[in-house]
């Protein structure tokens, strides 16, 4: 019930992600492609916080399509924002979770980086949203 007022909040988040470096890019022995990235992530999610917000879980996922899979979502980084003061942030990081394809489809692959967030209330309904940032591309050869 307390979360009804959350519907009145109309957030206006912003996000920006740069791929600073492809650290390495190879085919594993079992045939799956794996890539390691260095990312620069900046976002402002301050408007997500209301009086009923306990925390915001934020994560960055690589999203792409392959001949076999209609959708691949691979989490690269995530974090927990405990309060509004921490909701405008900037971080430079390598991918926290391994970016491994199901198969060998990553050479020259176009992909989106999507910043998702899940708002956890103090009580009541949880909700989620995202910003899709398209136009990233993996290199044409392993390195």
């Amino acid at each position: 019930m307390t979360s009804i007022s959350d519907n009145l909040n109309s957030p206006s988040p912003t996000a920006n992600v740069h791929v600073l470096n492809i650290n390495w890019f190879q085919k594993q022995r079992n045939g799956n492609d794996e890539v390691s990235l260095t990312l620069n992530i900046s976002a402002d999610l301050q408007s997500m916080f209301t009086w009923n917000t306990k925390q915001v879980f934020v994560f960055l996922a690589a999203e792409y399509e392959t001949p076999e899979n209609a959708l691949n979502q691979v989490s690269l980084w995530d974090g927990i924002i405990p309060s509004k003061e921490h909701a405008s942030f900037w971080i430079q990081t390598t991918n926290k979770y391994r970016f491994i394809d199901q198969g060998s489809n990553l050479v020259g692959k176009d992909f989106n980086l999507t910043l998702h967030w899940h708002v956890m209330p103090k009580t009541g309904k949880m909700f989620a949203d995202k910003i899709v940032i398209p136009g990233y591309r993996l290199p044409n050869d392993y390195r």
């Binding site: 899979n69 209609a70 979502q73 691979v74 989490s75 979770y97």
Partner: peptide, 22 residues
């Protein structure tokens, strides 16, 4: 736990899901 990876097939819509506790 929370889902961190999803791979969804084209035709069948079958999913492979990986989870993790925050």
């Amino acid at each position: 736990h929370r889902v961190i990876k999803v791979h969804e097939r084209h035709e069948t819509g079958e999913v492979d899901v990986l989870t993790k506790g925050d």
